[in-house]
Amino acid sequence: MIQFLKNLFGGSDPVLEVSLRELGVDMHSHILPGIDDGADSLEHSLELVRAMKELGYRKLIMTPHIMSDFYKNTPEIIREKLQLLRQAVKNAGIEIELDCAAEYYLDEGLLDKLDNNEELLTFGDNYLLFETSFLNEPLNLRETIFKMRSKGYQPVLAHPERYTYFYGKFEELVALRELGVVFQPNLNSLAGYYSAGAKDVAERLVEQGFVEFLGTDTHGMKHIATLHKVLSTKHLVKALALPLRNRQL
């Protein structure tokens, strides 16, 4: 339910506070225990699941990192952790649906997986979540996008607002959509959590309607705390008015 709240910063315009029940499904988080830079224990995972449910989520599609040099996760490892967390959530009496995919780092390992037709963890309608370096545009970015598409995947670019190599080049970022990429900004970017630059790009993507998914990218309780701040941002209201695909998952 939407509530009109007084603007705490002294303005005369009301701030809208929105429940994330209107979104329902999160498709980007690092809540599975002990396999990347997110939750480091089962207890930590349970704390995050409880917090996400309190925010209004009914389903979490958790996406551990897969990176050739750092996080050498496999579908088998990720599914094993999913089953472990599902059982713990059931034992704790928390009613929420849990599923998994992965966040793939664009490196040679991902290209090899695509070339060798290895199993990749996707969600929904064969959506493949991927990220790149935040600082440097990969030379093979467009080649890899084309390869994903040719293999039947729908590429989802995680947190497009955070790639500094696109700062000041908004049209080049948007041009990726012509290659079949869909965008998933992080909710916390709307509260300026990462940087002013990321906030600016995220807001612009929302204003232009260039957002298909919204994700929390939750790693820990610090992200949960910022999500509560996001609830009173005007751009969240605008984002939730878009035909977001989270609701179809």
Rank of each mutant, 00 (worst) to 15 (best):
S195A: 14
R247Y: 01
G220V: 02
L187W: 05
Y127P: 02
F130W: 02
S232T: 15
S133L: 04
M221N: 13
E212H: 14
E207A: 12
F170G: 05
V49R: 03
G197V: 00
Q184L: 08
F123L: 13
E47C: 03
T132S: 12
D36H: 09
I78S: 08
E76G: 02
V206F: 03
M62L: 14
I2F: 02
S189D: 09
P155T: 11
S232F: 11
L82H: 04
P160H: 12
Y163H: 01
P33R: 08
V230H: 04
L82V: 07
D36R: 07
P155I: 11
Q3Y: 11
L236A: 09
D217S: 07
I77V: 12
A225C: 01
G152N: 14
V89N: 00
L227C: 09
V15N: 14
S41L: 09
V156C: 08
T74K: 11
G34N: 06
N136G: 11
E80N: 00
P75H: 09
I77S: 07
G197E: 12
V230C: 02
G180D: 07
G56H: 08
T218V: 13
E17Q: 12
K113L: 10
E17I: 13
L173G: 00
Y104H: 03
F4Q: 13
D112P: 05
V201M: 04
L227G: 05
M221H: 14
Q184A: 08
A202Q: 00
L84G: 03
K81W: 02
R177V: 01
E161T: 05
M62W: 10
F183K: 00
S150P: 07
A202K: 01
L8A: 10
T226I: 15
T218P: 03
K81G: 04
N7V: 08
N116T: 12
E207F: 01
P14T: 13
Y104S: 06
V18T: 15
N246G: 00
Q154D: 06
G38V: 06
Y194E: 06
Y153R: 14
Q87F: 01
I96K: 05
E143H: 13
K6P: 06
E17F: 11
R245Q: 12
L16M: 14
Y165R: 04
V89G: 01
K151A: 03
L231C: 11
F134I: 11
G152S: 14
S41T: 15
